[in-house]
């Protein structure tokens, strides 16, 4: 399955089929125009971040051309990577994100398999229900969740707030519904005869899932994994609300809370931290992009 729609027809050397090739040429011009526009729009912020991260605080506050580094320095990087707190944030983020991905997959994949394949009473309603839960934004969820944890604390004496691991319970409220939904779509694109063949071959449902469905649906699985990781890595509201101590913070909240002191913004380090924080998802996307696209478009067409 290819994601690009442009067929690689060489441009006609002689414009014999006049209108066709002229149309095509104009279409190409317009698409390039808009693509370049989008590239500028979306790449400007990270480039600005990179430029700022290479400047000293003096240069940032000086009135010079903001798009040029006159006195490049790596001091922001050195300071940040040398400080224990930044590495703590990074470690917290990594542990939380990887754990959330694992937890999400352990729940979503069997759930999607059951909902898409093991026809049982109410399975269709449940599948829709899963999707509906995804439509509830975290801005609506975090207050009742906070309340629930307070009540839980009162009842059991176990403190859940301001613990990094509580994020392992919270993030799946965002990742599980969406990943389940992606996997339902992906499993639905696998022909029904495949699991029937496996059933007749003597496989149990679990064996069918592990030995047939997961290998066949690997692109979808990778897409869901990337999604879960990205959401966990970039999550801001939940950690802001539920964690406060420096040792419990994850990267996005950590950068904001420690590098902004009152009205003093340490822009160089903020940009450096944001840039370093963006690196892991970027690397993952770069390597798994094709799988991600294949996974998201599966089921759109048969084949």
């Amino acid at each position: 399955m290819t994601a690009t729609a442009t067929p690689s027809v060489p441009a006609a050397t002689k414009p014999r089929y006049g209108s066709m090739s002229r149309d095509r040429r104009w279409a190409m011009r317009w698409s390039y125009f808009f693509l370049i526009l989008f590239v500028i729009f979306f790449l400007t912020p990270p480039i600005y971040m990179l430029i700022t991260s290479l400047k000293t605080s003096q240069e940032i506050s000086a009135i010079t051309n903001p798009w040029w580094v006159f006195d490049p320095t790596l001091s922001n990087y050195k300071e940040l990577l040398g400080s224990g707190t930044f590495l703590t944030f990074f470690r917290n983020s990594a542990v939380v994100s990887v754990s959330v991905v694992i937890i999400t997959m352990l729940i979503s994949v069997p759930a999607a398999f059951a909902l898409s394949r093991m026809r049982f009473w109410g399975s269709a309603t449940l599948a829709t229900g899963v999707f509906l839960t995804y439509l509830i934004p975290e801005t609506l969820l975090f207050i009742p969740l906070f309340k629930m944890m307070a009540v839980f604390n009162e009842l059991t004496g176990i403190e859940l707030i301001n613990r990094w691991w509580v994020l392992l319970i919270l993030y799946p409220t965002l990742t599980v519904p969406f990943c389940t939904w992606i996997m339902i779509g992906y499993f639905a694109s696998i022909p029904k005869e495949l699991d029937e063949a496996a059933l007749i071959d003597g496989a149990t449902w679990t064996q069918t899932l592990l030995k047939i469905f997961i290998p066949v649906a690997l692109p979808g699985l990778i897409a869901a994994t990337i999604f879960a990781f990205t959401v966990s890595w970039a999550q801001f509201l939940y950690p802001l609300a539920f964690t406060t101590s420096e040792s419990q913070l994850v990267l996005p909240v950590g950068i904001i809370t420690t590098l902004i002191k009152g009205d003093v913004f340490n822009w160089g380090q903020i940009m450096t931290g944001a840039l370093l924080g963006a690196a892991p998802p970027l690397i993952i996307y770069a390597f798994l992009m094709d799988y991600y696209i294949a996974g998201l478009t599966a089921g759109a067409t048969k084949g």
Binding site: P191, E193, L194, E196, A197, A198, L199, I200, D201, G202, A203, T204, K211, I212, P215, V216
Partner: peptide
């Protein structure tokens, strides 16, 4: 259940396991 009926079925669209070799397909059961 189907697996305990000792039957084998050939489907219209073959229903071969796409990620397995022919040998693995045949020996899966």
């Amino acid at each position: 259940p189907p697996k305990d009926r000792d039957i084998a079925m050939v489907f219209q669209n073959y229903a071969l396991y796409p990620h397995m070799t022919v040998h693995e397909n045949m020996s899966f059961g």
